[in-house]
Write a protein that binds this DNA or RNA. Structure first.
Lengths: 236, 236
DNA sequence: TCGTATAATGAACGTAGTTCAATATCTGAC
DNA sequence: GTCAGATATTGAACTACGTTCATTATACGA
């Protein structure tokens, strides 16, 4: 009696179809112009069917964000388990974050929008929780790296807990991405190489934590080499 | 023949009334429920009159953001000219940012929303430009502090320009605020003292730049003292 | 006082998210 | 194979709001 399970599978496949098509529409025409009716039509379903899956448009957006976040977290978990010293693994998280944002240009914008009060509070509790759940393994993984570094004496624990420490690199990535992607806002800053700036500040932060081995920021080619190694070993 | 000027003044006063009332409505009922018709009614004007001032709802939101940003930038300019060493001035920017966000809880949310593609691209070019213009003096001021520090040899210029350097502390502030305010997202992180975490990472970043005099992060009361001094001398 | 220009009004319009009564489909029992 | 009941799908209608614009009111200068 596999009828029920088959139904369930078909239901999930359709949800995936909706999400994939939504992603395509956003890629082709932008987040601004995504319409529920058109999305349903594009999938050869009626509008109402969409609402069997998503309680609202915002709910759909959170679902989209969750899927991408899941991919990103998988990447981060791989980074956290990378065969390299804790310092390099920590830096690699920044490289991975930047890489992921570059590969999925709409993702950062979507995330920024989704975490807005207006959207977040309108989505269903269930969707919000399932997004939040995606974070659990990656938080565990990164906290593990920090703990390992503390145990080995490779970093000063100082007054911060492991979780408070990991928030720093996270904030630098997130903040930089957010500032840099706001069109026109930073035009007057004339940042020549945004990627390099992100990487440099990530290293600066780790140096500030006295995370061993310290990195020489005067050496420009060394930074490129660090990035190149991460890209070669983790992002190909 | 001051008729025209009087008209102009009255027009500006009315715009201010709209903005103040919008802020009040947002404070009382949230950003989600702000409605153009209700805002106009609350000011005893017809809906159409609002559109004499703002080309769209998004345009109004950008105008709101611009006013708050203007206040914040004035505060930042005062910080940049503070009578203290470059390192303390730089740190004071983070304290001021955090203070401002705490005093205006809706501001961070509004900013986050306004810089979203969906909102930003819908506002009029003029509004966007006038918001961007507000940033010019504060960028000049902060770059001045960085330049002064480089000149005095209090910081390693490294591979980054003054403008690239100031982006670091900015990103830490912005990123932290953004991460911490997303309800539920970081509940699992159990950050006990978010403010302290922001301040610590700001100091860590400055230490990483080798910005003199270095700060001892092991000394918890020293951090409190630094913050207290800024609050006493600049934020009262 | 009056003609004209300018501004204010709010009902009507348009759009897009959401709902729900009608319809179709599927399932399992007989 | 047929049928009753359950379940799923449909898309037109509903609703909410942002926006517009023909109408009306006001202000100004001659």
């Amino acid at each position: 009696m596999g009828t029920k399970e088959r139904r369930q599978r078909e239901f999930e496949a359709r949800e995936q179809l909706f999400l994939d098509t939504a992603r395509r529409l956003i890629r082709e025409e932008g987040l601004l112009t995504l319409q529920m009716a058109r999305l349903a039509r594009a999938c050869d379903y009626a509008t109402g069917t969409l609402y069997q899956h998503f309680t609202s448009k915002e709910d759909l957006l959170v679902a989209l964000a969750t899927q991408r976040l899941s991919q990103q977290c998988q990447l981060f978990c791989r980074v956290a388990e990378w065969d390299a010293c804790t310092r390099d693994r920590m830096f690699a998280l920044t490289v991975a974050d930047e890489y992921f944002s570059r590969r999925h240009p709409n993702y950062t914008k979507l995330m920024q929008y989704v975490f807005t009060e207006v959207v977040w509070e309108t989505a269903s509790l269930q969707r919000r929780e399932s997004l939040t759940l995606e974070l659990a393994p990656v938080i565990k993984g990164i906290t593990g790296v920090v703990d390992e570094a503390i145990r080995r004496g490779e970093v000063d624990a100082g007054v911060l807990s492991a979780q408070e420490m990991m928030l720093g690199p996270w904030a630098v990535c997130h903040g930089m991405q957010s500032l840099l992607q706001t069109r026109g806002l930073l035009a007057q800053l004339e940042i020549q190489a945004p990627r390099k700036t992100i990487y440099a500040h990530a290293q600066i932060l780790l140096n500030g934590m006295n995370w061993q081995p310290l990195f020489d920021l005067g050496d420009k080619s060394a930074l490129d080499a660090k990035v190149a190694r991460v890209e070669k070993e983790l992002l190909s």
